[in-house]
């Protein structure tokens, strides 16, 4: 089930990168990223646990990961 409050989007061009996937998994304290053989997977069940720390943004190339606050959208 997607998050009610938070969405996390990863650009297609980095999604399959094993190294970025590992870094994202490591950076997130609430397990929103899972590194798999196919790259990174966003764990929907944990999206609303996001603490908005932005560590994932720093772990991936600029602009390739976005944390969206759904409650700020109309």
């Amino acid at each position: 089930m997607p998050g009610l409050f938070i969405d996390v989007q990863v650009n297609a061009d980095v999604k399959g990168d094993a190294e970025i996937a590992r870094k994202l998994e490591e950076s997130c304290s609430v397990d929103i990223f899972k590194a798999t053989d196919a790259g990174v997977e966003v764990v929907e069940a944990n999206l609303d646990e996001c603490v908005l720390c932005d560590l994932c943004l720093a772990a991936a190339p600029e602009g390739s990961v976005r944390v969206v606050k759904l409650y700020e959208q109309d």
Binding site: L4, E49, V51, L52
Partner: peptide, 12 residues
């Protein structure tokens, strides 16, 4: 305690 996290929790 994070106000926003509790708000998300009770609304959900």
């Amino acid at each position: 305690t994070r106000v926003d996290i509790v708000a998300r929790g009770v609304i959900a």
